[in-house]
Design a protein around this nucleic acid. Structure first.
Lengths: 163, 163
DNA sequence: CAATGTTATATATCAAGTTATGGTTCTTGC
DNA sequence: GCAAGAACCATAACTTGATATATAACATTG
């Protein structure tokens, strides 16, 4: 069965990038599930941003993540309910709500940085290893490699080697 | 403001691909809006698949687009309401519902293939021109170029040159 | 200093993908 | 030839992005 998105090339590059991204996220989610981390893979960038940049107001958080502000507002409410982030009102500007990692959130990030992220990063790096040439060719190679060995299996193998 | 997704590199490649894909689709949508085509850019791959491959049952359509079957079912109902596709029951297998372009749908595709798709394809190709090297670098270049000149403006310029 | 405009966030709604599951219809094996 | 399983599609619920708009706090200006 012909892969139409691939055949259409540049015309549907947006759909194609989204498709590959969704698959990567789903595979990453499976890695996390297996490790008993009960959080969505898509929330990690937000936690990582707070870890890297320190407490931030909602708007700047959105900007640093490259997503729209309402998405951050929603993610923050969710993570607040999970007790991973805290929100405090800014002193000098009552409109701004500063988001920061809670103690639990910081602990989760520290653990993830040590035990989880390197594994995922290695798996993705391996997935993309030795790619070169035009973009469409690289994307096709990534799709082919993912079809042959999903990311979560690559992460498993990496762990087997490491331990 | 640091772009966290970019800094995290391979770790958040999935989120990053989705982000770029969404921006490309949004820009493409703006091109379409300006051309008075009242259809979502994300529906074009489905129409293009039917145009390329002929009438297809729902499952094969999903496979050729690389998305899950419920997504196709929903898109097909939407396009059926718009009068762009038609669904007929298969004769030899009552479970299969064959999706095909309606007369209007075929006309829309023919027009798009002549007037719209080349423009978008050229704009995206130009966006990706001369890219080479590692994947992350190419993605960064695409984001930078998009920030400098959005896709819809590139398509505009292409039209200006062409006409 | 009050009116107006701007900025920061929240809320509502939509879009388009996902997984899980249910109902028909086919197929197969005994 | 029928009972069990498989295949195909629809539906429901969820996720995560988007845009549009409302609200509240701050800034500006006449």
């Amino acid at each position: 069965m012909e892969d139409v998105l691939r055949s259409l090339g540049f015309l549907c590059l947006g759909s194609r990038l989204k498709r590959i991204g969704e698959q990567l996220q789903a595979d990453t989610q499976r890695v996390l599930d297996r490790l008993d981390v009960r959080i969505q893979s898509s929330q990690y960038p937000l936690l990582a941003a707070l870890d890297r940049l320190g407490p931030l107001p909602v708007g700047e958080l959105a900007q640093s993540l490259g997503i729209a502000q309402p998405g951050v507002t929603r993610a923050v409410s969710l993570l607040t309910e999970l007790g991973l982030v805290e929100v405090t009102q800014s002193n000098d500007d009552q409109r701004r709500r500063i988001v920061s990692l809670s103690r639990n959130g910081q602990r989760l990030v520290d653990t993830a940085k040590r035990d989880v992220w390197p594994r995922i990063e290695d798996a993705v790096a391996e997935l993309c290893a030795d790619l070169s040439g035009p973009l469409l060719g690289q994307l096709a190679a990534i799709e082919d490699r993912l079809a042959a060995t999903p990311l979560d299996r690559r992460a498993e193998k990496a762990r087997a080697v490491a331990s």
